[in-house]
């Protein structure tokens, strides 16, 4: 799709965290949203972050090739939705993109829904691509599990959340990231009161659900107790004909349901 500079596209970006080390970074889905925005709007794309402009990880977004980024300076306990609502009241946009959910904190993924509800815009969740924008309508591809896609049309303006199946974000370059500028606006958000009552703790591992055998008879109980666990060394076919081997493989494929009818 050619770069459409007449469109006003904003991307909401957050500070992510690495799933393994927990270190601050650009959030993966947000970065994909920025990538999607860059392919649509080029460098006229605007980035909006609610939080602290002092966070170094934000520069990773600027390193994707943007000169500036708007930061609505807010305290950590502020309610980002109210801050953004005020922002979009004065800075209209045609498309607002965001990740599906944040990588830290509550990560409810509710913010785009709140914005959409209060702005009265439609919301398209989990998009992978914006195929075309014509006559005030956009054709988007929604990501479904296992690589499937669904085409949707939606009128502008709208909010979309960008799925992890969207094209990967371009590399962030250190130099431009360091030189990028923050347009800091003092936010006027209300505090998120409800959250203050919550207790946060290090995630503890969830108990694995045991495979409870509901044996109805002694024979079944006996079978359950003595059955070999599956997957301990597979079957090896050597002497059979190629036809039989192929049949065995094919049957397995059908049984696993990966051969489409």
């Amino acid at each position: 799709m050619p770069v459409e500079t007449s469109l006003n596209i904003a991307v909401l970006v957050s500070v992510g965290q690495h799933p393994v080390s927990g270190r601050a970074r650009r959030a993966d889905q947000d970065a994909r949203a920025v990538e999607l925005g860059l392919t649509l709007a080029g460098r006229s794309l605007s980035l909006v972050h609610v939080g602290d402009a002092g966070e170094p990880a934000l520069r990773q977004y600027l390193g994707m090739g943007l000169r500036t980024m708007t930061v609505l300076q807010e305290a950590p306990e502020a309610d980002a939705a109210s801050s953004l609502l005020q922002y979009f009241a004065t800075h209209p946009a045609d498309i607002v993109l965001a990740g599906v959910q944040a990588e830290r904190g509550e990560a409810s993924g509710l913010l785009p829904y709140l914005l959409a509800e209060r702005l009265g815009w439609p919301l398209v969740p989990r998009i992978a691509q914006i195929r075309a924008i014509e006559n005030g309508r956009a054709e988007v591809l929604q990501a479904l599990p296992r690589g499937q896609r669904r085409a949707l049309t939606v009128p502008l303006p709208f909010i979309a959340t960008v799925d992890s199946a969207a094209p990967g974000a371009r590399q962030t370059a250190f130099g431009p990231g360091q030189r990028g500028l923050f347009d800091i606006q003092r936010g006027l958000a209300q505090a998120d009161v409800a959250r203050a009552e919550w207790v946060e703790a290090q995630a503890r591992p969830r108990p694995k659900r045991l495979n409870v055998v509901k044996a109805k008879s002694a024979a079944e109980r006996f079978k359950a107790a003595t059955a070999k666990p599956q997957g301990q060394g597979g079957q090896v076919m050597k002497q059979e004909s190629s036809r039989e081997k192929a049949q065995a493989i094919f049957d397995l494929l059908v049984a696993e349901g990966v051969i489409r009818q």
Binding site: Q17, P19, E103, A107, S108, E197, V199, E200, A201, A203
Partner: peptide
């Protein structure tokens, strides 16, 4: 509730809507 990136647990009052 499990928080972002599955790294924290949030204990809270049960709301009306649960995902």
């Amino acid at each position: 509730c499990r928080g972002g990136s599955g790294r924290i647990d949030i204990r809270r009052h049960t709301p009306r809507v649960l995902l």
